[in-house]
Design a protein around this nucleic acid. Structure first.
Lengths: 217, 217
DNA sequence: GCAAAGAACTTAACAGCGTCCAGATAAGCT
DNA sequence: AGCTTATCTGGACGCTGTTAAGTTCTTTGC
């Protein structure tokens, strides 16, 4: 559907690779001015093109942001996967490492993360986006399945579902509070932003929920 | 066109109570179109005044939203307080009830809640806002102090602080995920929105962290 | 009792935004 | 070569927040 002609010299069009440059510009703008500070015209300006040029690569402003979110979700999934593997065979360790990876990704990629969880700023129907989002969610779900000794295909028990939600909520909430600056007050005088991830985060994850059911129901 | 208003004791100026009507309009708009869908002009339009009229009551658009957030934080604090009292003398029960109140408020007041935790949409320096925000935070902190047997004035131990953050994160994260529609997938076929608060929430709060220190030495 | 003061509001304007449209330009295809 | 198609420009439209200057009405001072 794109250009299956000659991938050898793909850049030599008119401008080069405007699409990628627009994505890069968008991420930079969000980083500097926040998600709400993003404007399509500014992205075009930074790429050196007219305000109408992006329309040839993205349906509209939401389209560009959708592409940014998509790439974010892919990397996010990779980070969670890496954390999961780091946890080895112990479900508890897998969950802990995933939690660390979850929050660390959020703090290391504030622009993307804030966009990714801002429904309305992008189209969930953008090609590939729903898949990437569900993949990330599935990584956590699989670890919960393992923790409760439930085969991957089967549905979770109510309690296991509550456990999943609690775990998800705690890491998501922590990331959200940290990015929102809600924790800055407590972190003041204790090392600031660094203290949040190095001190507060481990201390918080120590209180991650524990599965209420041994491996055998 | 001139609607008969009830000025009661206050003077019925030109329009009446434009300030309150602007606040009401703002809340309605946020409810209908989301926080990002709010525009100052639309609020003025609904109040039946020109786009420049709000400037006489609020410094700018952020000023109006600050007033909305302020009223939200006040009610939020009241809700948390009520939950705390509902918990009686048992710190665990107090925390559980506060958690329920926290999420229920968010789901019952989605417009306000989403605004309240959207730094950048309002001025934190708006008169009374910081106080109202800290009051709400303090309610949770006091229950944690009680759970760990630490006098109210003294600082929390590192573990107690982690416990506070974990508790806050879990309810905040749940509210955020629920409002973002992130839970709709799982809730489908199980009762939708109602299932979230009636089924998922209690199940999740069952996994609230437990203080790692016995209350009395 | 009446004019001065000032609060509440309007009208008009400005710059910036997203998006649509008609044209220009350059690259690839036959 | 000619033709087609992708890419980008320039201008326009209606929307936004905010400011400046002018108008209408309420309150206050004398």
């Amino acid at each position: 559907m794109k250009s299956p002609k000659k991938p050898t010299k793909k850049r030599a069009y008119h401008h080069g690779d405007l699409k990628d440059q627009l994505v890069a510009a968008a991420e930079a703008i969000i980083l500097e001015r926040g998600v709400d500070g993003f404007t399509l015209r500014e992205a075009a300006r930074r790429a050196g093109v007219s305000p109408a040029a992006p329309a040839h690569h993205f349906k509209d402003a939401k389209g560009l942001l959708s592409e940014v979110a998509l790439r974010g979700f892919k990397d996010f999934g990779d980070a969670l996967d890496a954390g999961d593997k780091r946890g080895g065979v112990d479900p508890q360790a897998r969950l802990r490492e995933q939690g660390m990876a979850y929050v660390k990704f959020a703090l290391a990629n504030p622009a993307r993360f804030q966009l990714m969880f801002r429904a309305g700023k992008f189209d969930y129907a953008y090609p590939g986006l729903a898949d990437a989002g569900m993949r990330a969610q599935g990584i956590l779900a699989r670890a919960v399945h393992a923790a409760y000794g439930i085969p991957d295909g089967e549905p979770l028990t109510p309690d296991a579902n509550g456990f999943l939600l609690a775990t998800w909520s705690i890491v998501h909430g922590f990331a959200h509070l940290a990015l929102g600056g809600e924790l800055d007050g407590s972190a003041q005088g204790k090392g600031g932003k660094r203290a949040i991830v190095e001190s507060f985060l481990p201390l918080t994850l120590q209180h991650l929920p524990v599965p209420k059911v041994p491996r055998k129901p």
